[in-house]
Design a binder for these strands. Structure first.
Length: 293
DNA sequence: GGCCCATGTTCAT
DNA sequence: TGAACCTGGGCCT
């Protein structure tokens, strides 16, 4: 689950359910037990996210810094919590809400300075209201690294993961192997502001959907995605299947130890394309509406 | 029950 | 470049 939208959604939920209230804090698994004991009974002052990092504010007691890594999860809800299990690193409960953290890469108690050090090594986040594409552009425009790798570099942009990077490049017809210094400022701005919109939708629905209205299952008369993580996407983990726009087989390749997915026909450009013509003009070797999924 | 894989990151070589 | 880390789901036997 964890790209930036997940953490911002968690911050919002924790703020709403626990903000300004005293909370019980425990670590059934034990690995956060000492800090949990310090925080137990304290007031939950607030929550904040930057990229894939979540910060829970316990006022004078410090900040709980959480990073979910590849498979960390936070189960949560209103009402009474389920019986605890021995994989819960951190449990927070209040009168009528609970949250259980499992499998994080990081769950530590930080001072203000420790928290600032985390911010300092992160780039701008499309989900933080005051962040802009400028700092990212400075790095991208000077780099020979591929745009696919740059998008995954949290020092460049914070919060983008393997799904959003594949999808935003598809949506604008960008060849993922384009070096950063071959992108125009206008193209980068297009990618950034599209990420802002896509990721805000991600926070709202707590899942990643990236297909335009004309490519939804309903619009195309195709079955919805049932296998994976729920959201409707163009290329992520669709390798070998037909592109929803042009019918070409989606490809995959390993890039910096992660799987990259793209459409070799739609994504040939270094300049952001208009949504309607990502394949170029002639083309119709297959009819998009006959695509089976 | 075992094996593989995963929306991530860091550290060692 | 590879291993390690944390957990759970899917698929295999």
């Amino acid at each position: 689950m964890p790209e930036g939208h997940t953490l911002h959604r968690l911050a919002a939920d924790h703020q709403e359910w626990f903000g300004g209230r005293p909370v019980r804090v425990s670590s059934p698994q034990g690995r956060f037990a000492a800090s949990a004991a310090l925080l137990d009974g304290a007031e939950f002052a607030g929550a904040e996210a930057h990229g894939k990092h979540l910060f829970l504010d316990f006022g004078g007691h410090g900040w709980v810094h959480i990073h979910l890594g590849l498979f960390g999860k936070v189960a949560r809800g209103t009402g009474a919590p389920p019986p605890p299990t021995d994989t819960i690193r951190l449990r927070i409960t209040a009168e009528n809400a609970w949250s259980d953290l499992r499998g994080p890469t990081a769950c530590t108690l930080l001072t203000d300075e420790g928290k600032q050090a985390v911010h300092d090594r992160l780039g701008p986040d499309p989900l933080r209201a005051d962040d802009t594409p400028d700092a990212a552009w400075r790095r991208i425009s000077r780099s020979r690294t591929t745009v696919a790798a740059l998008l995954m570099d949290q020092k460049v942009v914070a919060g983008v993961g393997n799904v959003y990077r594949a999808e935003v490049l598809f949506r604008h017809g960008i060849d993922p192997y384009t070096p950063g210094n071959r992108l125009s400022r206008a193209t980068w701005d297009t990618l950034w502001y599209d990420l802002v919109e896509l990721m805000r939708e991600g926070v709202r629905h707590d899942r990643i959907d990236t297909v335009r209205p004309e490519h939804t299952p309903e619009a195309m008369g195709r079955p919805p995605r049932v296998d994976d993580h729920g959201g409707e996407v163009y290329v992520y983990r669709r390798d070998g299947r037909p592109c929803l726009v042009c019918g070409e087989q989606i490809r995959t390749a390993s890039l910096a130890a992660r799987n990259l997915f793209w459409c070799p026909r739609c994504q040939t450009g270094t300049t952001a394309q208009e949504p309607q013509k990502p394949c170029g003009s002639q083309g119709a070797t297959s009819e998009p509406n006959a695509v089976e999924v």
